[in-house]
Simulated scan of single mutants.
Amino acid sequence: MKFAKMIGTVLGVGYIRPAPGTWGSLVALPWGWLLHVIGGFPLLVAGVVIAFAAGWWATAQMTAGSTDHDPSEIVIDEVAGQWIALLPLSYAAWTMGLNILEMWPGWIAAFALFRLFDIWKPLLVGWADRRGDALGVMLDDVIAGLFALLGVIAMAGLYHGLL
Rank of each mutant, 00 (worst) to 15 (best):
F3W: 14
M6W: 13
G8F: 08
Y15C: 06
G21I: 12
G21D: 00
L26W: 07
A28Q: 00
P30F: 05
W31Q: 08
G32Q: 01
L34V: 06
G39R: 05
G40V: 00
I50P: 02
A54S: 13
W56I: 06
W57T: 10
T59P: 05
A60K: 15
A60Y: 13
Q61D: 13
T63P: 07
A64N: 11
G65R: 09
G65C: 09
D68W: 13
I74P: 03
I74L: 12
I76T: 06
V79T: 04
Q82S: 13
L86A: 02
P88F: 04
S90H: 11
A92F: 15
A92Y: 15
M96I: 10
M96E: 13
L101K: 02
E102R: 14
W104I: 04
W104V: 15
P105W: 12
G106K: 01
W107P: 10
I108C: 00
F114L: 02
F114I: 01
F114D: 00
R115H: 12
G126F: 07
W127G: 01
G132H: 08
L135C: 03
L135K: 14
V137H: 07
V137P: 06
D140S: 03
G145K: 03
G151T: 09
V152G: 06
I153D: 04
G157E: 07
G157N: 04
Y159S: 11
G161H: 08
L163W: 09
